[in-house]
């Protein structure tokens, strides 16, 4: 393990990334999919509206993007802070 300040910087960078990812996670599912659906109902998607699409398709696609982004970003962060596995 590396020295204390370095590992603290690594951990707080990680927390920042996780927080932003979870904000997006919540906005597309609980937000667009459920609570904010009335606000975006003016945008029509094939016989229904954008909220319906997010609830049944969009949220899943965004979840995928979040996980792959996180894996890529964290591998980069590991290397930057010298805490990656060799």
């Amino acid at each position: 393990m590396s020295d204390k300040p370095e590992s603290n910087a690594y951990w707080s960078a990680n927390i920042r990334i996780v927080t932003w990812c979870l904000v997006i996670w919540a906005v597309v599912s609980f937000g667009f999919g459920i609570l904010l659906r009335p606000l975006i109902s003016g945008i029509k998607v094939g016989g229904s509206d954008l909220g319906f699409w997010f609830a049944q398709q969009g949220s899943i696609l965004v979840f995928l993007a979040i996980i792959f982004f996180y894996a890529w970003r964290m591998n980069k962060l590991d290397a930057e802070h010298g805490v990656d596995e060799q």
Partner: peptide, 24 residues
């Protein structure tokens, strides 16, 4: 119909939590 979209979001959204907060 729409109301049961909860199953779709719930059973996939959990993987975000798993990947970001537990698995590694």
């Amino acid at each position: 119909g729409y109301d049961n979209s909860t199953f779709l979001m719930g059973w996939t959204g959990g993987y975000v939590l798993l990947a970001l907060m537990l698995a590694p």
